[in-house]
Amino acid sequence: MVTAGLGTMDRPGAEQVEVREAALREAWSAWPGVASGRHVPPPIKADVRSLSFWYGKVQAVKNVSIPIADRRVTALIGPSGCGKTTLLRCFNRMHDLYRNTRYEGQIVLHPSGTDIIDRGVNPIEMRMRIGMVFQKPNPFPKSIFENVAFGLRMKGFRGRSEIADRVEAAIRAAALWDEVSDRLRKPAYDLSGGQQQRLCIARALATEPEMVLFDEPTSALDPVATARIEELVQSLKERVTVLIVTHNMQQAGRVSDFTAFMYLGEMVEFDRTEKVFQNPGKQLTEQYISGRFG
């Protein structure tokens, strides 16, 4: 449950979650098989409710609400500067590292019901539960093994063989094992850019987070490396909820189940990815998708 801080009025009641589920259900309604009952909408993993964010006096996120579906890929798209990165970094409270930043609203993480934005919630706990992969591959200047083991050590794992097992599992999950299994003790910086980015994914996966945030993970990579990452992101949803920011419309179309289109800090449209791309509900979305601006 939410810890101290906000009044009880703001706690997510069951009925409120249901309202958000309705948004997901609506987004699902046209999905093949849903009508016939073969599919049911996924539960909500993280519920963004009326979230606003300020850098000093500049409001970068304006009253955004999005339901993030459990173990699905949700893409954030929108023109440069519309606040995608800012919104993403609210999920693991990265903004807390800098001065003069302010959040308002809620991001309720289910099933625990924790409000990520709540002052009483420790950002460190959120960062352990929600992993992040950055735009530019940023491995630590340590060995490949130590890069992945770091999060485990932070979480308090001590056993040598247990750490080794989990490191291997994470590197395998990031589809990197075959390329690095014989040089785990070598510096991570000897890897190619694409390999480094997969190593960063392994690093984020090692602690078994509930959710992984990707901020344009392929923007620094070539097409082949990009394809591998995309494949990887899709395979991840078997185990974790994925929220991915991308500039690349085709990428959003390829990897995501749901898409949220943002513009000038506001959420314009949220729906099933197919729907957003083939039959957007808002004119602004249509214009952006068809490349008329942005």
């Binding site: 950055f134 940023n138 630590f140």
Partner: peptide
Amino acid sequence: QHIREAAYAMGATRWQVVRYH
């Protein structure tokens, strides 16, 4: 800065970032 952010994003405390990175 991106090295610091990578470490903080893993859930490291300020002391752990200083000590281990």
